[in-house]
Design a protein around this nucleic acid. Sequence first.
DNA 1: TATTGTTATACTCTATAACTATA
DNA 2: TATAGTTATAGAGTATAACAATA
Lengths: 159, 159
Amino acid sequence: MARKKDEGKDATAEGRMDEAMLHDLVGYQLAQAQIATLAVFYGSVGRPLELRHVEYTVLALIKENPACTPARLAKELAVTAGNITMWVDRLVERELVRREASESDRRVQHLYVTAKGETLVTAATRQLLDGERKRLIALSPAERAILVELLHKVATCRD
Amino acid sequence: MARKKDEGKDATAEGRMDEAMLHDLVGYQLAQAQIATLAVFYGSVGRPLELRHVEYTVLALIKENPACTPARLAKELAVTAGNITMWVDRLVERELVRREASESDRRVQHLYVTAKGETLVTAATRQLLDGERKRLIALSPAERAILVELLHKVATCRD
DNA sequence: TATTGTTATACTCTATAACTATA
DNA sequence: TATAGTTATAGAGTATAACAATA
């Protein structure tokens, strides 16, 4: 009986699914929201500039933290060292980033964006901010600012 | 000159990296926050109950939307039809979900959680809410509620 | 002996597309 | 002809672990 009713409901449903059980879970809402933000990224930056979103993030972090090491990036992005090697490799091959050996500890590398990389990441960031402003229209600027701050707080809860 | 100073700064830095450029990007902050929420998920639910986070989400959505179809799930989670087949397969193999052929349209399936599935998803949700409450301590309950609502708004910006 | 970074390899998840069976 | 779902295959991304070089 309940099933018959549910079946009818689902068959005609057009909007989003019911998620009462999941409503209060930050993780679930985060994943759903990320579907929207990834679409914005690939639409406004990823496809036009041929950048995977991890590549963009690595590039932006190196620009903001010149001389940072691969180990630092790996920690920040919660990926393995081998992984960072691959992402940095791709950016180096495109001449967006350069590696420089440390003088004080020869195991260590320091990373810098090239002029080309700086131009690209600056353009990408501008387009991305613009894309988010245009496409995340359900949020007012004030709400976006609050959201960013709350997400920042969540990020501090790592380990 | 600037480089020399930066190199020294990075070598001694202990905390998080500088992200001024990325600070206002919802997408970046979302990805950073997700590192924390995924850790909470796998710590409190994923590893103990042997559930991938997509499996948990699919299970919870079927529980909340009895008789829903694979096509509906695929749309909700923004994955392909073939993908949903695989995830539902896994849940069916573990007897957490069952498929039922539609009577009105024999191409269509309706999905239901089994008693076993309902028990598991109920326990998982309780543990996950508990885990988030305990581990996302930088957020007050009120802030978590605001965050969830704002993320919900972002999710409405899809397509 | 511990650490930085690289490489090789396997695994997970996803996307594409061809297929079936129904409508 | 279009749609729901399945299957097969390839690709992207990640993790594991063995390795070289340096501390």
